[in-house]
Design a protein around this nucleic acid. Structure first.
Lengths: 412, 412
DNA sequence: CGTCTATGTCCAACTAGTGAACTCTAAGCT
DNA sequence: AGCTTAGAGTTCACTAGTTGGACATAGACG
């Protein structure tokens, strides 16, 4: 019982006017999900009465959480309500296997700045954090935002991580990061709350909020790049599983006597689909400095070898997705990573494999789509994570991160 | 937006006095979990004020949901509040492949009566419902409970079912039931709300509430009998997946060129582990009228052939569990069905396979246990389903099933 | 240009929870 | 035995907060 350790907020456990708080959050969430709404729309989507919405919007406006643009286009006289751009800033940081990417956004889902640079993540954790801190500071300076407005940071790491403890799971997959606690590390350097998750989970969240999953509540995001991972979003939230590391689709066994995988087992999906195992297959025919991107480009240009390789990868991924489908029964699967650029060349074989290996009732209602965000999915997901972990109420309590003395005094 | 089709209940979506409802439920849940509490204790555990608890308890008492025993032992003057034993009755019905089992229980988690009889479910759906209705009526009569007190029925069917539509998923798996809507059918016959689910899901719930999962919030229940299915419970609730048929572990592919499965694919886990595929292996050596129970018994008595077969089954199940483990990362797996009786003979190979094929970080925190309820897991789970679907609030609405005119009139 | 319709606001009514005061009972002390 | 004490449960006045309905507003439509 009561497994959550750090229940900082007392939460007004029972009732009283916790209802008001709940309604405030409901409105904020509705606005955040939709980007902007009129009051009438808020009333309809939240189920609250127009009068209540009117009161709440006024309160939020006075609190500075929300902006009301006096007149919107089109309709009669609807005033559009949106999260005020300068009410809070969120930052996304994504460590990939070959790059570091940072984005700065506001509460209105607008990306203010985004930048990436090459980075070998296998090298040293400390160096990675240095570079991340540096890049974050650079973007903060470039956008000119107020540091005190930073509500939170979302952080993606390319490997399984236990979100509760903040510790990386299987260190075999991410050498050089052994024992690192990325969230703590970054929180120490930036001085704001940092929420960490696996890059595949963040990719899933990113596609859900900004990409191919817009409007859907549930999706599985399969990321194929250096490794293969899956991010699961269920009912709008990242699903991590009781143990905290769900979605390790890359290491389900497809062939018990297959190639040895970096995880120590044999015949993992990764050994048939991930760049580090697939690229060598083409080295003798296509040279040694081929990248996954290159293979995809060649395949699209008609190169038969690359097409064949991509189709085979697709078939194997499809087998994995079929397992996922039988066990979890998602309604939408989004393919991310470099491979998604191959479009139907890879999606076709995936769908075919799914149809072949999943039970029909599960496969029937599944749609498999390419990601719409490419390599940006993870950073944007990190932004979305920071936004959602903010809990819709951080905005209300102490005005953003609890250190903004200008807005509250006139409140009495 | 608004993807849920059949939003039958209006749910007082926003607020107002939904708060009251929430508080009622909070109190009922607290009492249900603790067995009995004094008002002061309720106030402390729920966080409500003593005054509010006083009002709520009076309301519940008048509604007949709760009983107040005038004076308890020990203390000063504390009155003990508990769910009134006859406040509501729940019924569990479980269709197995070879049997029908019914249990009657009350809100205090007590099983009042339980009975099972043989039944060939593949025969005819109508006949099955007839028998179920009959047996339910017999148990109601035997326990002498008041029919109007029946709050709900939980119903288990041995195949994938879409809980939303109430329709069976893959009809290939359950011939004779094609197009049947079990919940509707039974609701029509018994005249009370019926909540249906897959037997594996109910087994999971049963083990969670009464068996090997007591005290845990999450577990995966693997049921091996005629087929192989998994029930997933996440955070105390059955997890059905966005599409409604999660947990079909029996049909993940272990060997692409393996035996043809009844689902139409090849090399499904079922073809290596389920009774209908495994028993024939022993026919030439052990005779044709062998059952899974018999094999288990022989294996425990030392029969090498049966031991070998059971170990092989265990290894294959372990492969499936490893996949499950990588994708969902549960903290506990409970093995149910006849096979569980084999104990370490099957659990050992399962654990070995999991250790071999799952990623270490996921396998490390997994415990694999035998079910504690045997064949009763599903019926008891059906009871638990009826209890939980009741939502702690069905008790409040129209006094139990909405057909008890005695309590409401004095209300104005 | 008048009518229509949907938006947003204001006000009175109502619901429901809370603190404080109060009663009641049994235990403990003198 | 009688008094005190302390926690249990109830009552009451008060307050917070939501709602329905009335009302003002302003673009759309004919």
């Amino acid at each position: 019982m009561r497994s959550r350790a750090q229940e900082v907020v007392v939460e007004t456990p029972g009732s009283q006017s916790s209802l008001h708080r709940a309604n405030l959050e409901r409105v904020v969430r509705a606005v955040r999900l939709a980007g902007s709404l009129t009051q009438a729309e808020i009333a309809r989507t939240t189920g609250l009465s127009a009068a209540t919405v009117s009161n709440i919007v006024r309160e939020l406006k006075e609190g500075g959480t929300v902006e009301v643009t006096p007149t919107s286009a089109g309709g009669r006289r609807a005033r559009s309500v949106s999260l005020s751009g300068d009410a809070g800033i969120v930052i996304g940081v994504d460590f990939g296997h070959t790059h570091l990417r940072v984005a700065v956004g506001n509460l209105a889902h607008q990306v203010l700045a985004e930048e990436s640079e090459p980075l070998d993540v296998d090298a040293s954790a400390a160096q990675g954090f240095d570079r991340a801190e540096e890049l974050v500071n650079r973007l903060i300076a470039a956008t000119g935002v107020d540091r005190t407005k930073i509500a939170g940071v979302g952080l993606g790491v390319p490997g399984p991580i236990d979100v509760e403890s903040g510790q990386l799971g299987s260190t075999a997959i991410l050498p050089g990061w052994t024992g690192a606690r990325p969230a703590e590390e970054l929180r120490g350097r930036l001085g704001v709350p940092v929420h960490v998750d696996n890059d595949a989970n963040l990719g899933a969240l990113g596609e859900l909020v900004w990409g191919s999953g817009k409007g859907v509540r549930d999706l599985a995001y399969i990321k194929v790049s250096s490794g293969v991972g899956a991010g699961l979003v269920i009912d709008g939230k990242i699903y991590r599983g009781p143990g905290g590391t769900a979605g390790e689709i890359g290491h389900i066994t497809l062939d018990e006597s297959g190639p040895v995988c970096r995880c120590g087992n044999r015949g993992c999906l990764e050994t048939f689909a991930a760049a580090r195992y697939v690229l060598p297959l083409l080295q003798s025919s296509h040279g040694t400095d081929l990248t996954m991107e290159g293979v995809v480009r060649l395949a699209r240009d008609g190169d038969p070898g690359c097409r064949r390789v991509i189709a085979d990868v697709g078939r194997h991924i499809g087998s994995g997705v079929a397992n996922l489908c039988n066990l979890l029964n998602p309604s939408r699967v989004v393919l991310g990573g470099d491979l998604a650029e191959a479009g139907e060349l890879v999606l076709g074989p995936i769908r075919e494999s799914v149809g072949r290996y999943a039970i029909p009732s599960a496969a029937r209602q599944l749609s498999v789509l390419p990601g719409a965000l490419g390599g940006r999915a993870e950073v944007l997901g990190a932004l979305a994570l920071a936004l959602s972990e903010m809990g819709d109420s951080t905005l209300l309590d102490g005005s953003v991160s609890g250190a903004l003395p200008a807005a509250t005094p006139a409140f009495t």
